[in-house]
């Protein structure tokens, strides 16, 4: 009998297989940033979040906003495997008529709680969701996953101020700290490090974890749940392209399509889909 961490680790591996396969078949997409957040998404959708795939708009459900919307292949894979829509939809990513848009779309994909992809906006939207839950007396949590690069957007800091002011204990933000953005290393493009003290200075509850360690992800969420008087940030150290060795350290995989040979190489490392 596998324990919870082993089960989620296995799901994250399957999500990674889906990510590289669907981007290869679709001929477009962002593999590197999808792979860096696969473990967090697996933990959220297969353990943490109270959701009902048969009723995606259940008003009491926990919310998730993929602020770094370009990583949606990982989210689409999780939603498909969780039963929101057939797995066979995944290769239709980014094609005309597909329910899987190039970036998440609240109206086209069951399970997507908000349109996203224009960077920096997720925390503000999460604030709205958290405030609505409080006003309506609902107990759901709102989870936001942002990149580290997108924290360069000014709206992020507008949101940090407001979330603290309203003491939004049910708002939990993961920062997928893979240290890279479209044109290179975050520290070189426009450094916003260190991230954690900045959130702390804005009054947030902060934790720092290995974003590929399922046990640490689950523990951090539990700790964040216990903080009721302010919002939480979990700084997750991650690796862009995690799971596919030839993508690691090569930022061309921010947005690049694996060839058939490259796909096979990736699948050989990730193992079979069983």
């Amino acid at each position: 009998m596998k324990n919870e961490v082993e089960i989620l680790t296995e799901i994250a591996r399957l999500i990674r297989i889906d990510v590289v396969t669907m981007i290869h078949m679709a001929g477009d997409g962002h593999p590197g940033p999808s792979l860096s957040c696969a473990d967090i998404i697996a933990a959220l959708y297969f353990n943490v979040m109270r959701v009902d795939p048969a009723n995606p708009n259940w008003p009491e459900r926990d919310r998730f906003i993929l602020s770094k919307g370009h990583a949606c292949p990982a989210l689409y894979a999780a939603l498909a495997r969780r039963g929101y829509f057939p797995h066979a939809e995944l290769p239709k990513l980014r094609s005309l008529g597909s329910i899987l848009q190039g970036h998440p779309d609240i109206n086209k994909t069951p399970g997507i709680d908000m349109t996203s992809g224009s960077l920096g906006n997720g925390i503000s939207i999460g604030i709205g969701m958290a405030l609505a839950g409080r006003l309506k007396g609902q107990k759901y949590f709102t989870y936001v996953l942002t990149g580290d690069g997108e924290l360069q957007e000014g709206i992020v800091w507008e949101a940090l101020m407001m979330a603290k002011k309203y003491r939004l204990g049910r708002l939990i933000v993961f920062v997928d700290n893979n240290e890279m953005q479209s044109s290179g290393y975050v520290k070189e493009v426009s450094s916003l490090y260190p991230i954690l003290p900045k959130f702390e200075a804005f009054g947030w509850h902060c934790q720092e974890i290995d974003g590929h360690n399922i046990g640490e992800i689950l523990d951090a969420v539990k700790a964040a749940h216990d903080v009721t008087d302010r919002p939480s940030m979990i700084l997750a150290h991650t690796v862009k392209g995690k799971g596919v060795p030839y993508m690691i350290g090569n930022n061309s995989w921010h947005k690049r399509v694996p060839t058939k040979d490259e796909l096979n190489l990736a699948l050989a490392v990730l193992g079979g889909d069983d």
Partner: peptide, 19 residues
């Protein structure tokens, strides 16, 4: 929201998405 209109509009989107 304070003097933060982008945040205000995005926050309103979140509020509206929850009914």
């Amino acid at each position: 929201t304070g003097i933060a209109e982008q945040n205000a509009v995005a926050c309103a989107a979140g509020l509206a998405s929850c009914g």
